[in-house]
């Protein structure tokens, strides 16, 4: 296992390096002055210009420029944003937690609804139930997420007037930022209207989280169903039936844990599309997260914001996909057999 972990760590480092190379090359292709694209300072004074040239080694060869670029980025210098004149790193720290919050809530909704429904469609003997669930998941898989978000906000937000459709919290509440996660911050907040604020945050997250949850939900249902059908045909399930165990014990204790293993693997593969969807959802619901920040960055051609946003999101995805892969290997001893001798 130790050797395996080192290999995964190497993979993480190699992928991060490749990501740096992609961004470094893209930065040189931006239709802007190189020092401006790197630092975000539009009209530098002579002193600033010298500083930038020194930091990014602009007068040396490409290799040392690349090394300087990596050093600057790793030490947290992402330059300043052209529009807000703030340090990009601080802005990034402000927009990442809301995105994590949204993704986390959406993931929980998808898992909590998807796993039982997948089991139901695998175990149910009625063709009707199976076909309805499969048709619903196929439709959910095909729906364009921006359109779904618009329809939901039109219906629940405006026609029925039940839920707020933009932002993270009503502007009336002044909640100090402690963790950045609004759900925790309102709980930590000690003032009047604490619970009103918490309810308001909950109401704000329902629509975006449900919209975002549709894609993972359909995938979870389909994978759980396929895995469950596969597991229920295994011999150890028949052995458990022969021992006379009650049906729910067999399903919950013998079948379900084994069916969840392939699900874990597919969750890792789904991170990329999930992030794409999250960006669109954040734009539609004006969620103050990294996706909306990035899209407004591209509208304003804010090159430092674009680099930092892409770097952060891709790094998070690389990290979590490798983490899920490690968890998968830890949970599934059968996959360790193939680990050695191949790549």
């Amino acid at each position: 296992m130790g050797r395996y972990l080192i290999r995964r760590l190497n993979l993480f480092l190699a992928t991060t390096l490749a990501l740096f190379i992609i961004l470094f090359v893209a930065t040189r292709w931006f239709p802007a002055d190189l020092s401006y694209a790197l630092s975000g300072v539009a009209l530098p004074t002579t002193q600033q210009q010298l500083q930038i040239e020194q930091d990014y080694a602009l007068h040396s060869n490409v290799i040392s420029q690349f090394l300087a670029y990596v050093t600057e980025r790793l030490s947290g210098n992402f330059g300043i944003s052209v529009t807000s004149r703030q340090s990009v790193l601080n802005e990034l720290a402000g927009v990442l937690p809301p995105s994590f919050e949204l993704a986390f809530v959406a993931g929980i909704i998808a898992l909590l609804c998807g796993i039982p429904l997948g089991m139901l469609s695998a175990l149910s003997r009625s063709k009707m139930v199976q076909k309805t669930i499969m048709a619903a998941t196929l439709t959910g898989y095909s729906i364009p997420v921006f359109w779904l978000g618009l329809l939901l906000s039109l219906w629940f937000g405006i026609e029925l007037g039940l839920l707020p459709i933009s932002g993270q919290i009503n502007l009336l509440y002044q909640i100090p930022k402690v963790t950045g996660f609004m759900l925790f911050d309102t709980l930590l907040y000690n003032g009047d209207y604490k619970w009103n604020a918490f309810a308001d945050v909950l109401a704000h997250i329902i629509l975006p989280a449900c919209t975002l949850a549709v894609l993972p939900f359909t995938v979870v249902v389909r994978i759980t169903r396929a895995a469950m059908l596969n597991v229920m045909n295994q011999t150890y399930i028949r052995a458990a039936e022969a021992r006379g165990l009650p049906y729910h014990t067999i399903v919950l204790k013998h079948a379900l844990p084994n069916a969840l293993i392939p699900l874990l693997k597919h969750l890792g593969l789904m991170l990329g599309p999930f992030a794409s969807y999250a960006i669109v959802v954040e734009v539609i619901f004006s969620w103050p997260g990294v996706g909306a920040w990035l899209v407004s960055g591209i509208y304003q051609r804010d090159y430092t914001v674009i680099q930092a946003g892409i770097f952060a999101v891709a790094l998070v995805i690389i990290f979590f996909s490798i983490l899920i892969e490690v968890l998968y290997t830890a949970a599934n001893p059968m996959s360790r057999k193939e680990m050695y001798g191949t790549n």
Binding site: L11, A14, T15, T16, A18, L19, I22, L271, G272, P273, A275, S276, I279, V280, L294, G309, I310, V313, A314, I317, I318, S321
Partner: peptide, 10 residues
């Protein structure tokens, strides 16, 4: 893998 980890929208 590095290319794959950048979502299509990014």
């Amino acid at each position: 893998d590095a290319l794959l980890s950048i979502p299509s929208l990014l």
